[in-house]
Each structure stands twice: as structure tokens, then as C-alpha cells.
Design a protein around this nucleic acid. Sequence first.
DNA 1: CTGAAAGCGCTAACAG
DNA 2: CTGTTAGCGCTTTCAG
Lengths: 330, 330
Amino acid sequence: MASMNEVAKRAGVSIATVSRVLNNSDSVNEATRLKILKAIKELKYQPSRVAKRLRSKSVSSNLLGVLIPDIQNPFYVDVLRGIEDVAYRNNYAIIMCNYGQDEKKEILYLDILQSEAIDGLIAAPVNENDQRLKNIIKGGLPVVCVDRGLAGIDVDIVWVNNEEGAYSAVSHLVKSGYKRIAYISGLPSIPSSRMRENGYRRALENAGLMDSGLIKYGNSSYASGVELCAELLDMPNPPDAIFTGNNLITLGALETIHKRKKQIPNDVAIVGFDDMFWASSLNPPLTAVRQPAYEIGKRAGELLIQRITDPQRPCIQMTLNAELMIRSSC
Amino acid sequence: MASMNEVAKRAGVSIATVSRVLNNSDSVNEATRLKILKAIKELKYQPSRVAKRLRSKSVSSNLLGVLIPDIQNPFYVDVLRGIEDVAYRNNYAIIMCNYGQDEKKEILYLDILQSEAIDGLIAAPVNENDQRLKNIIKGGLPVVCVDRGLAGIDVDIVWVNNEEGAYSAVSHLVKSGYKRIAYISGLPSIPSSRMRENGYRRALENAGLMDSGLIKYGNSSYASGVELCAELLDMPNPPDAIFTGNNLITLGALETIHKRKKQIPNDVAIVGFDDMFWASSLNPPLTAVRQPAYEIGKRAGELLIQRITDPQRPCIQMTLNAELMIRSSC
DNA sequence: CTGAAAGCGCTAACAG
DNA sequence: CTGTTAGCGCTTTCAG
């Protein structure tokens, strides 16, 4: 890998001039410019992003960090795609950190990310009190949160209206005549789990159908969906419908329901939070609350790049709408 | 962010000594060691991975590149999880590049990755003649390929026996009595697409059932699954079974079949390459060839770290077994 | 318009 | 056992 020095030598100029044409910062004599360009081509010179990053925190080093809880969740995959598209268009690379809901891992990754001198970070923190992340924000790193906010600190956020989404889903269940509607929650420490529970409660209270015994708390995973759905079906007086708190829980619950040969929606109806692009190929086609995941990622990416450019811009919280996709599981 | 200099100053030693305790390279007097450790703690010092990387290509900078064609494909997500687990355990961070089957994007990402001075790369190249990647390997960067190999160059590879996997799937179809078995292929430029086609052909030729008119070539995407399946069903003499070339194609084909209210497997049977953890919740539960994707990623990660440690180690090609998961779609 | 030189944070000889 | 010093490849004053 040729360095700037070699280019300079070959072109018979100083490295400063090479740097200038590379960043077309100052004006350079056209003839020398051409000479340099020629040398660059001949040497197949590629600038080192590392040296650039080390040299100047002031200039953009073109590296973004993404910190997400669960890469296996299709929702985050779509968010990631959105971020990645924006990053690519702006010549940013992405360091992707998947902490698997594990706080220790999150901390390590946050350290690494800082240590890599990233320009900005898009994160879905473990919980809203994430002290590490708050400190990083206070330290001046541009950060935008997705899907999950942070308490007591001003930060850009992109998420959906979780409560409304849940409310519309559960209301749909109520309107369809279901009486014993259960909720399989994700990790209660995640704000969105609680927001969704609020929507669920509001819908049921309005209908006079609320029964706290029908709420199960899990850890947002496929396994917890499998397990908690089984607990629900094992009740002496099982629910006639289930509202599942996320993607993975839905898939897990489906697994259990099918294993027991229960009919959906006749034996038990189901509506899930989070749509999947193949939801209409599930058995039966799944009614679900669709979060515009790709859009969330895209917006977050745009906000982050804006903030990198202009750190003074006031924080904004962007709430996108979740939409109920009615298919045939309830 | 405190630097080594500040730590040295605070501890009243030289930066060299700080570096020594940090890397416990040379022996350091216990008392000074403690002083330094104290200073590090007080200053919340974090070493800069960037400076380290710039300084010495000889020492590990703890950054791995991952270059994959399609993050939306659950197969690659699982591969990524496997890589990530190994990386995490070895204190490596990952730069994730998703080129979306777009060769231009792949080239840009390859440039960026080199420019970031990564220690090693795990890649699933666009095609087996990927010149850019070959040059990088020749340049001495440790690389291991997953899922797709590279022609005419010695490189570590981890993949499955695609031909055998396809053969077993199609043979199962034959044994079940299907006569007109179609294949929706992914991008023919991808070696695995062709290997799978070979398995398909071999199974059908053995049974005297081969009909080239029943092969459709697409681009490995969900959309191509939707579209090519429709073409197949629109034929005057449509197939009674379909073998789909990957995950996304399967999901797309399912979409089309359901939209047309065809019954699976009565109207048309389907068996897919690539299993998904929720495959038993599909309508109907999908029979599929399961690639051990997580395992592939894990092995690739291990091989890469080995190679970084010992660049002289002879290349190895690791072929894992694909397994037919029989459920009820055929 | 161009070059010299300082320095980003760190490692690795080389002396002492 | 510890300090000095020379860079890694680049940007950025400051002079010419």
C-alpha cells in the first residue's frame, strides 16, 4: 500500500500538496495537480482512513458506530439496512456491534467504539438509564437513539408510537370479539415493552376486559415466546387471543401453538408487534403492527450525519407511525 | 479522552513504561506498575485503537472486516452471529459491509476495508473471479471466504456441500412422486447457485425427469422468488413441485403461491434451500435444506484468527454438511 | 501556489 | 527496570 510520501516523491512535490489535491482544499496549480493525480493512479494509492482519523478529530473520519441489541431480530436488520444505505451514500463505513441484550457486552462495545474514534453512533441502548451511553453523549460524541430513548438527557431519537400501535392491535382484537386477551411482553426494562403494555392496558380497560393475570413478562427472545405462550395455553382458563410484544416472541408463540395443534384464530388468535416481509406466508397470514424499520434506520442515519456536520443543532425526537396490517391470524 | 501522555505525566513516568504495563510486554517494577494503573483508573484512560493500528501493522489492531452480499438474508445474519461471537471472545470489533449483490458497492467496501487497516477479512465474494478480492489476498491480508469460493487462488473457505444438499432435497421430491420439478435458481454467477443446480440436475436425471424448461434463473432476491414462481405457475403445463435456490427465493415463492390460493403441497409442493428458525411456523411447515449458518460463521472466525496469528498455515477448505429438514411442504 | 514542520497516540528499538 | 526517540500516514498552520 503506497503512502502519501511515495506519491509526493514520484510527483516531485511535497506531501502537503498531495494532501491538498486529495481534499481539494486549497487551490493547486493545474499542472502539478495533474502530475499528482497521475502518480496516485500509477501507485494505486489509497489514503489511509486510519491515519486521517488519528490526525484530526476535527475532520470527518467517515466511520459510524451502530450498537444494536439483537441482530437476529428482523426489525433491527431492517433498521441496519436503512442506516447502511445512508452511510454508503455518504461514504461512511459502519462498525456494527450486536450486544445481544447483554449489558457487559454493550459496555465493551461502547468502549471499543470510542476507542475507534468513530464520528457518530446510532444506538438502541439496553435501557433508558444507560449511564455509559449518557456519558458518551455528554462527552460530545454525536449520537442518535433508535427504537429506545434515554431518560434525563437531550438526544436525537427515532422511534414509533409504541403505545398507539399496541392500542390499535389490541382494540382490533376486542372489536373481533375476543374476551381473554393475553400479552407476552418483552424485557420490561426496555421502554418500548412498557409502552406497548400501556397501549394493551388502555385498550382492555376501555373494554372492561383487563386481567393482569394474562400478562407474561419475558426477555424479548424467541425462546421466551415459546415458553410463555406454553404457560398461557396451560392455564386452567387460557386466553382466547394473544398479543405478542415483538417479532421474535411472535415467532416463538407460533411455534408453541402449532406444536400443540391449536387452530389460529379459532382456538387462539394472535396479533404481533412487528411485521415481517414474509408475514403473509406464515400460518396463518399474520396480523401485525408494522414498524417502518427501514425508514427508522434511514432517518436515524440522516439525523446523525446532520449532527456530525452541525453539533449545535437542537435535538429532535422523531416519532413515526406504526400501522396495523390486518391479515388472518385474528 | 485522556492519552497515554497524560497518564505518564500523572504517574510520573515515561509513556514507554505506560505502554509496557498496558501490554505487559516487559517486566515493570511493581510499585510503578501500581502507580500507572492508578493513574489510568483516575483518568479513565482508554487506549486508542486507531493510534495502535496506525503504528504497527505487525501487532494486532483488533479489527475484522466482514463483507456479505445481503444482510436481509437470514442465512447471512446467522453467519454474522457466528463470526461476531468469535470476534467478541477475541476482543475484535467488526466492520460490517453489506454490498447487496452490487459489485460497485463491493469494490468500494473492499477499498474502505483496506484503508481501515483491518487485521483480516471474512467475505462472501460476488463471484469466484472477484479480482479485487484476489489482489487483496495476494497482498497478504488474511482472508477467509464463506459460502462462496474463489477460483485459481489458495484461500481458506467454509461452506456446505451445496450439490449434495440440493440432491437430497430433489431426491426427496422424486421419491414423493412428483414428476415436474422446477428449480428457481439464484444468480447463476454465484457458485453455490450452480452447485445446487448440479444437485438438482443429477437427481432428476437419475429419475429420468429432467426438463430444462423448468429452470428459472433469478438474482437470489425475494422479488425474484415472487416473480419467477408466478412465471412457473403461469406455464401451460406448470410444475407440480418447486425447489427454491435460497431463503429469500423460498419466501417470495410462498408469497406467490399463497396469493394464488394454491394449496401446498397438493397443488404444488415446495422445498427450499436454507432453513429458517421459524420454518415450522410457515404455511405449511417448510421442508428445507438446513445449512449450519451459525457454525459456518463461527468456523470462519476461528480460521481467520488462526491465520492472523500464523499467516503461514496452509489453506484449508472446510465443507460442512447440509441437512434436509422434512416438514410438510412436500 | 507550495514546502517545511509539528503533532495526533501509540509501539519498538536502543540506550542507559 | 526505565527513558528517549523515531516514526506509522496524514492534516494543518506558518512561511516563503
